[in-house]
Each structure stands twice: as structure tokens, then as C-alpha cells.
């Protein structure tokens, strides 16, 4: 049986805390610790387990600071989990990171390009490090840019001359250029104007329909999650609290009400006990206190 595109089992991740040197002090100096004791590490992912099947668009929906990006960074091999395991098409992201890297690509909220290089120069570099020849990249690029509604002439200008929306479209182009079998989209439409947002969303749907790609989409945009995802997991305080198709999730909280009248916002509120904005505020308070 084929492995799921993504499979995580009991993944935990902690940040910060460091070593509490004051702990070593003998009495009576240990009283210093009362004021100076370090806060423990932040538990940013808590026992995260889920599986996304091949060809699926799997959404991870949660507030800012809920652990979505940490999860994506673990799947991208940029961060090591403290416990548990994560597999991409059966390959362990820690022990088989090189193989995993050849299967994935990522779009994050920050386009992340060399600002003074042109879009084409950037894409040539990122294509080359994925093993594609310049000729191959130049052959594929115009088609991808056209599908994103991007003019070729603009792709020859430095990235710093492009608008935020255009830069984000280039980030999407970069990831699809390398034909990843798993695409990690980490809030890809955050900060985009409505038109750019629609273009990116349409492209994601088109890629899913035409290619054998699996997509993991993290977002705090309820509408986007419902529009694009086959299944959605709600994440709050680093823990996955619910998972299912948008319909099943709505059905779960309907309790006699017509399912079509239930919004994703309502589902999130009922399953996590708070609105997404409240969850964001709580996450910000935790971060500020650290």
C-alpha cells in the first residue's frame, strides 16, 4: 500500500527556555532564582498527528502563533521535531532529509527572493539547485507565468521593483517550476490584494486538478480554507483539535441547524472554544510574556 503524502505521529516541538543556570546555585543564593528563574520552553507543537493522502489539498487552519508555520518548517526539513516523527511519502524528514527535499517545495507569506536580482535570475538559481538546466527552466517558465497572469517583461526586472502581489506570484511560480510532488503553502495569500489572492487560489486549484501533486495549505482565512481544501485540520495552541472535510466539520457542530448555514468561523469557535481573533490575541500574549 502506498504511503500517505504526509504522515506525522505525535510530533512535539519546544522553543527557547535554555538552561537555567540559577538552578545550580546553593542556598541561600538559590533565592535569586525566585526572581530570575527562566521560564520553561514554549511547547509550540503538541502531539501533532495527521495524515494527508496523495492528491489531496489538506488545510491546516489556525490563528497566528498556533504552530502552523512550525509544522511546515518541520515538514520542509528546516526544523527538527523534539519527539515524534514526520514522513513525506514514507520518507523520514529527519533521517532522509535529502530525499524529502527533492520531493517538496514551499510558498510562505514572505516571498523570499534576492531583491536586486531579476525574477528570472532568481528562478534560474532556484530551478538549478533543484537540478533543472537553464534551458529547461526557460522552457517551462513562460507557461507558468502566463497561468499566473504575470507579464514576461516584468520578470526581467529586479524583484524590488515588483509589487507584493507580483512577488508572491513569483514565489508560487518558483515552487511549481520544480514540479514538487508535495507543495507546502504556508499562508500564501496573506497580505495580497483581492485580485492577486484570487489568481493564486485559482492556480492552486488548477495545479491540483491537472497534476499529481499534494498540497498542504496553512491559513487563518476560513473562506480560503473552505474554498480550496478537501480536508481541514484545526490547530490551536499547537494541538490539532479537529479534522475532517469542510462538510463533516460543519455537520459536527450543526446540532439540528441546517449545515449550509454553519460558517467555518462558527465551526472554529465551537471546536476550539474561541474565535480565531481571540486565539491570535492569546498567542501574542504568550509570545510577549516570554
Amino acid at each position: 500500500m502506498a504511503s500517505p503524502a504526509i504522515e506525522t505521529r505525535h510530533v512535539n516541538k519546544y522553543f527557547g527556555g535554555g538552561f537555567d543556570y540559577l538552578r545550580l546555585l546553593p542556598p541561600p543564593f538559590d533565592r535569586l532564582r525566585a526572581n530570575g528563574a527562566k521560564k520553561g520552553p514554549a511547547h509550540v507543537l503538541r502531539d501533532v498527528s495527521f495524515a494527508a493522502q496523495r492528491g489531496e489539498i489538506y488545510g491546516v487552519l489556525g490563528a497566528n502563533g498556533s504552530g502552523k508555520s512550525t509544522l511546515v518548517r518541520i515538514l520542509s526539513t528546516l526544523l527538527l521535531p523534539d519527539s515524534g516523527e514526520a514522513r513525506i511519502f514514507g520518507l523520514d524528514v529527519v533521517r532522509q532529509s535529502s530525499e524529502v527535499r527533492s520531493l517538496i517545495n514551499r510558498v510562505s507569506a514572505d516571498p523570499s527572493f534576492f531583491r536586486n536580482m531579476s525574477a528570472v535570475e532568481n528562478l534560474l538559481f532556484f530551478g538549478r539547485v533543484y537540478g533543472f538546466s537553464p534551458a529547461e527552466i526557460k522552457r517551462r517558465l513562460p507557461g507558468i507565468l502566463a497561468r499566473l497572469g504575470f507579464e514576461w517583461e516584468r520578470a526581467l526586472e529586479p524583484m524590488s521593483h515588483l509589487s507584493r502581489g507580483q512577488q508572491q506570484k513569483m514565489a508560487v511560480a518558483r515552487s511549481f517550476l520544480t514540479s514538487p510532488v508535495l507543495m507546502l503553502l504556508d499562508e500564501p495569500t496573506t497580505g495580497l490584494d483581492p485580485r492577486s489572492k484570487r489568481d493564486v487560489q485559482a492556480f492552486v486549484r488548477q495545479v491540483r486538478d491537472e497534476h499529481d501533486s499534494t498540497i498542504l495549505l496553512t491559513t487563518h482565512d476560513m473562506e480560503e480554507a473552505e474554498l480550496l481544501c478537501d480536508r481541514i485540520a484545526f490547530i490551536a495552541n499547537g494541538r490539532i483539535v479537529a479534522e475532517g472535510t469542510p462538510f463533516k466539520l460543519r455537520e459536527r457542530v450543526a446540532r439540528g441547524r441546517p449545515v449550509e448555514e454553519i460558517t467555518m468561523e462558527t465551526v472554529f469557535m465551537e471546536l476550539t472554544g474561541k474565535r480565531i481573533e481571540e486565539d491570535e490575541e492569546e498567542a501574542e500574549k504568550v509570545l510577549a510574556a516570554r
Binding site: R73, S76, T77, L78, S98, R101, S102, I104, R106, S108, D110, S112, F113, F114, R115, F126, V129, Y130, G131, R174
Partner: peptide, 14 residues
């Protein structure tokens, strides 16, 4: 500085 560290280091190049 350029903000490309994650994309460069997750590329499949040793």
C-alpha cells in the same frame, strides 16, 4: 539578509 535562507537551505543540494 536577503531573506532567502529557508528556500536555499531546503533545496536538494548537499
Amino acid at each position: 539578509w536577503e531573506g532567502t535562507i529557508e528556500h536555499t537551505l531546503m533545496a536538494p543540494v548537499s
